[in-house]
């Protein structure tokens, strides 16, 4: 139980750190990092939600696993989901960083407070 609390608490903390970066920092790269931390936090949460102590991956290649798969294996779905979520996160980060490069080319700055149309 404590271990689960550690994972969930950790992902909540990561999420808040990410949100803090996005909301407070004025550097575009730091904002992108904040977005990435938020995604990582959610990914950690997904993995943790599929984890059950003392159980193993549901690859049914051992007799004890085959006999009682539902008591010996963890839920594989969150792990499949997190792979997809990580890949999507990478795509978003790549997009974000390439946009940041374009902004720097056009405006010669990474400071969000100097970008006129980005104030909100």
């Amino acid at each position: 139980m404590n271990q689960a609390l550690l994972y969930f608490g950790g992902s909540a903390a990561l999420f808040l750190i990410g949100l803090y970066l996005v909301l407070v920092k004025t550097n575009l790269i730091k904002i992108v990092l904040g977005l990435d931390l938020m995604e990582t936090a959610v990914n950690l949460f997904i993995v943790a939600s599929g984890y059950i102590k003392d159980r193993t991956a549901p690859i049914l290649n051992r007799p004890d696993l085959l006999a009682h798969p539902s008591q010996r294996a963890v839920d594989p779905v969150p792990h499949a989901l997190v792979l997809t979520a990580i890949v999507i996160g990478v795509a978003v980060m790549a997009m974000a960083l390439s946009i940041v490069i374009r902004i720097y080319e056009k405006r010669q700055t990474l400071d969000i407070s100097k970008l006129r149309s980005l104030r909100w």
Binding site: F15, A85, V92, A96, S117
Partner: peptide, 24 residues
């Protein structure tokens, strides 16, 4: 347009992260 894209990206990806969280 690139500034607009960045603004959209920040708000949009926070939105989709929240959806993923709610879903899980």
């Amino acid at each position: 347009s690139v500034e607009a894209a960045f603004k959209y990206l920040v708000i949009g990806s926070i939105g989709s992260t929240l959806y993923l969280l709610g879903l899980i």
